[in-house]
């Protein structure tokens, strides 16, 4: 990569950092401006006395200007102090730590399914002829209308009531048992995205198959398999990668639904529970975490694409 491309890439990554900064401001201020006095929540249900109110306001620096509170919050987050849950009165970090592993495992499991079946079926649809294409088209048309909660209840019914091959509740003990328990949640999470990735992959490959540089390769007598690997798949990969990044980021949010449906105690179900109980510090930190994941994933994807296609940083700006 040329120095110029690297500078462009750095500018792009800087833009992503700015996005993260602005998103953190948005999240903080949205919560800070929430109707209702946080003191009531902090007092934990009891009607607070004026002295207690004073103590709580002082402890949480609620009398400082909002931007000071923001800086304190961000400073704390950067140093690992994620704040204190209104509901449990325990540090948010202690709530997240035991749950994050199982959520990551669930998302990773789903990502593997999406990559193998989504990209795989997309490639098959593009190269295997009209009958396969049609079959995949029908499958993906239905797939993109199958949200996690619908797949979840079908799986719970089929496997919980009728077949009984996989557990439909909880997470189990140890990695293998974890994976066994997460099979159905991962499938429910993956179905819609498999269909979506399949369509994106097929579209990207078909577009490249019709690209004029592929004509050149054909006239030069290169074998069809070589043309597919070196000219079609390679050139389709930036688009597939770009969509993958956004997809995985969205997946982490949707995993809340799968966790809820199958009783998996991950950060998704923690987020839902916190929102239901107005536990704002937890919601704030988890939202920020998900945005951070989005930004990091996009940075990784941008770098990967820039390695394949150094021109991408010049032409494919933020739009």
């Amino acid at each position: 990569m040329s120095a110029y491309a690297i500078r462009q890439l750095a500018a792009k990554l800087g833009g992503l950092l700015l996005t993260l900064l602005l998103a953190s401001i948005a999240i903080f201020f949205a919560v800070a401006l929430t109707p209702g006095d946080p003191v009531t929540a902090l007092a934990g249900g009891v009607r607070p006395t004026p002295e207690l109110i004073e103590a709580i306001r002082a402890e949480h620096h609620l009398d400082d200007p909002v931007w000071m509170q923001y800086l304190r919050w961000v400073g704390g987050v950067l140093q690992g102090d994620l704040g204190t849950s209104f509901v449990y009165k325990t540090p948010v970090a202690e709530l997240i730590a035991p749950r994050i592993g199982i959520s990551l495992l669930l998302v990773a499991y789903a990502v593997v399914l999406i990559t193998v079946f989504g990209i795989g079926s997309g490639i098959l649809a593009a190269v295997r002829g009209p009958r396969t294409d049609r079959a995949v088209l029908i499958g993906t048309s239905i797939g993109v209308a199958m949200p996690t909660f619908v797949v979840a209840i079908v799986l719970i019914w089929v496997f919980g009531r009728v077949l009984g091959w996989f557990p439909v509740y909880g997470t189990g003990e140890g990695l293998l048992d974890n994976l066994y328990h997460l099979t159905l949640p991962a499938i429910s999470l993956a179905v819609l995205y498999i269909a979506y990735m399949s369509r994106i992959t097929r579209g990207a490959i078909v577009a490249q198959q019709h690209a004029e540089h592929v004509d050149t390769a054909r006239v030069r007598g290169l074998s069809p398999s070589r043309i597919f690997r070196r000219h079609v798949l390679l050139n389709a990969s930036p688009q597939i990668l770009a969509v993958s990044g956004a997809t995985i980021a969205g997946l982490i949010a949707v995993s809340a639904v799968a966790e809820q449906a199958f009783g998996v105690g991950g950060i998704g179900s923690l987020l839902v529970e916190a929102a239901a109980r107005k536990d704002l510090p937890v919601v704030q930190v988890l939202s920020l975490l998900l945005v951070t994941v989005f930004v990091v994933l996009n940075a990784v994807v941008d770098v990967a694409i820039a390695i394949i296609d150094p021109d991408s940083v010049k032409s494919r700006r933020s739009a």
Binding site: T216, R220, H231, D309
Partner: peptide
């Protein structure tokens, strides 16, 4: 075709793989 003829096109920019 590969050995007995060569072909050049109107738009060389579109007819060369931009990534390689």
């Amino acid at each position: 075709r590969a050995t007995r003829m060569g072909m050049a096109f109107q738009t060389p920019r579109a007819h060369l793989n931009p990534l390689r």
